Amino acid sequence: MLDEISSPISTTAQPAAVIHITVPRDQIQQVMGPAIHEVIGAASTQGIGPRGAVFAHHFGMTPGIFNFEVGVPISGELQPAGRVKAGEIPAATIIRTVYTGPYEGLGQAWGDFQDLIEAQGHTLGPSLWERYLSGPEASDDPATFRTELNQTIQD
């Protein structure tokens, strides 16, 4: 289920600890969890985060491939640690909503969300990101998971 979509919002860049991942879609479940633990661990060890929800910043949606960064917001300068590098949630003009439901429904939620954005006359931008507001750490019921969807626009 999608919440009402926002009007266009101008965001500011936010520093983050990130891991860049490019994998076939069917491998996302194997790589996402370890990457999340790795970025949280690096930010925590360095005392600079996390300072907000875990996110996945996607660089377009290529069929069959996920090209994205998984990360957490931070409040200081990150020293690279293994795969973890300094990155950011970008400054952009976006439209936002929140999806409530299991992660398996995110693909359909994104499609519905993007259709609503285009129906309002906006042109989709090249990137998007999700912030995982509440998930398995908060509930055993996937129907209660909340994921913020952020789509860049080119207006």
Results as ranks from 00 to 15, higher is better:
residue 1 M to N: 00
residue 3 D to H: 14
residue 3 D to W: 11
residue 4 E to W: 05
residue 4 E to I: 08
residue 6 S to M: 07
residue 6 S to Y: 03
residue 10 S to L: 12
residue 11 T to M: 03
residue 12 T to K: 13
residue 14 Q to S: 08
residue 16 A to T: 13
residue 18 V to N: 02
residue 19 I to P: 00
residue 20 H to S: 06
residue 20 H to C: 03
residue 21 I to H: 00
residue 21 I to A: 08
residue 24 P to H: 04
residue 25 R to P: 00
residue 25 R to T: 10
residue 28 I to F: 08
residue 28 I to K: 07
residue 28 I to D: 07
residue 30 Q to G: 01
residue 31 V to S: 01
residue 32 M to E: 03
residue 35 A to M: 03
residue 37 H to W: 07
residue 37 H to M: 11
residue 38 E to G: 13
residue 39 V to N: 12
residue 40 I to P: 06
residue 42 A to H: 12
residue 42 A to Y: 04
residue 43 A to R: 06
residue 44 S to V: 01
residue 46 Q to N: 03
residue 46 Q to V: 14
residue 48 I to W: 12
residue 49 G to H: 01
residue 51 R to I: 03
residue 53 A to H: 14
residue 54 V to L: 09
residue 56 A to I: 09
residue 57 H to K: 11
residue 59 F to G: 00
residue 62 T to A: 11
residue 63 P to W: 06
residue 63 P to G: 07
residue 64 G to D: 04
residue 67 N to V: 02
residue 68 F to H: 05
residue 69 E to P: 01
residue 69 E to C: 09
residue 70 V to P: 06
residue 73 P to S: 12
residue 74 I to L: 09
residue 74 I to V: 15
residue 76 G to S: 02
residue 79 Q to N: 05
residue 82 G to P: 09
residue 82 G to Y: 15
residue 82 G to C: 12
residue 84 V to M: 12
residue 84 V to D: 09
residue 87 G to F: 09
residue 87 G to I: 04
residue 89 I to K: 04
residue 89 I to C: 04
residue 90 P to Y: 02
residue 92 A to F: 00
residue 94 I to W: 12
residue 96 R to G: 10
residue 96 R to Q: 15
residue 96 R to C: 10
residue 99 Y to L: 05
residue 106 L to R: 01
residue 107 G to H: 06
residue 108 Q to M: 11
residue 109 A to G: 13
residue 110 W to M: 09
residue 111 G to C: 03
residue 111 G to I: 01
residue 112 D to R: 15
residue 115 D to A: 14
residue 116 L to R: 13
residue 116 L to S: 13
residue 116 L to V: 10
residue 117 I to W: 01
residue 118 E to Q: 15
residue 118 E to L: 02
residue 118 E to R: 08
residue 119 A to Y: 08
residue 119 A to H: 02
residue 119 A to W: 04
residue 120 Q to V: 02
residue 126 P to D: 15
residue 126 P to I: 08
residue 127 S to M: 10
residue 128 L to N: 13
residue 129 W to V: 00
residue 133 L to S: 05
residue 133 L to H: 01
residue 135 G to C: 04
residue 135 G to H: 00
residue 137 E to I: 06
residue 137 E to Y: 11
residue 138 A to N: 07
residue 139 S to D: 06
residue 140 D to T: 07
residue 140 D to E: 14
residue 141 D to S: 12
residue 142 P to N: 05
residue 143 A to C: 02
residue 143 A to R: 14
residue 144 T to D: 14
residue 144 T to S: 00
residue 144 T to Q: 14
residue 145 F to E: 00
residue 145 F to V: 03
residue 146 R to K: 15
residue 146 R to L: 05
residue 146 R to M: 11
residue 149 L to R: 04
residue 151 Q to C: 08
residue 152 T to K: 00
residue 153 I to D: 07
